[in-house]
Amino acid sequence: MTPVNATFGEVAAERRIASSPLSHVSIELGHLYMEDFEAGPDRLRQQFRRAEPWASTARRSWQERVPGGRARVSTCFLIDDYFSRFSTPAELIPVIVETAADSGLTIDYLARESACARAGGVEPAKLVEDRLVADPPVGTNGSRPPARETGWLCNGTRSPVAGVVQAMGVAQKWRPPAQNAKRGHSVFVDVELWNDDDGERTWSCPFLAAVWQLLRLGMLRDDGRPPVVPQPRGTTFPDDWADLPPIIRLVPSAAPFAAYTTLSVLSSRFMPVELAVRTILSQVAVDAEVLGQVVSRSEDEGVPLEDELVDRLSYVFT
């Protein structure tokens, strides 16, 4: 008798990871916070005017880099509706789109900042929280749980606090904090990720910005599916931010929202925030399968990517 090879599978035992469509670069044309809104329409105009040359340069350089010159470039704009709410979508969005157009810019996608915290039934920020892997100080051998100050993340070893000393034990002296990957001297960064004051979770601006970068890189999955998918725009915009989809596609023919790389054109006041974002992103474990999908697709297209996620981010501070 010939042995027969049997194949057996169980659906509940499988892991399916959907791939998401990707552009070559996602250009963020700006963030809009309440203070920018209150500063009047000139602030927005100035922001777009400064962003335009960088956006067109990025577009050109990608066209040169991609074989055949068919670079997929998408642009996006982020409005804060998480830390403070102002105006209404119906009032504000047409103004933003027009002001951008005045500077020769097209906004393909518009996102609400709160989408990074919650988008429909999914909480992207929590997906990221569970994927944090703390940067270990020298001597971390796994024997104790990662030293973690709840709600904080750093790139090294904190200064010791006057902690537990046994009776008649030796008290500790002050020591400086240290960066784990320091070269000679440290640049120690300690980032607040959230606070749970009043029993409610409030995510920090850098943490949501890190989630935003991961969404733009197409790196997050919820049960194998992208947690936030851009929705087409309706004929009108609602009067309440809550009624606006987390991310809307303003231009029907736009290149995909997520991209291999991101470029953010921001006011230089966001520099500390983006340093914090990079500190967070260096400690997020992205699904290996998602990473692999992206790498193999980019290689097929002849645009090799950097190994490390943080190296796929670039900035212009104006």
Binding site: E10, A12, R15, V133, G139, T140, N141, G142, N180
Partner: peptide
């Protein structure tokens, strides 16, 4: 992931822990 044959077996997603030692 949950397997039911030939014996019930459920396995968590993978997690990472950083080490330097």
């Amino acid at each position: 992931r949950v397997f039911r044959r030939p014996i019930a077996y459920a396995v968590s997603p993978d997690r990472l822990t950083g080490v330097d030692c």
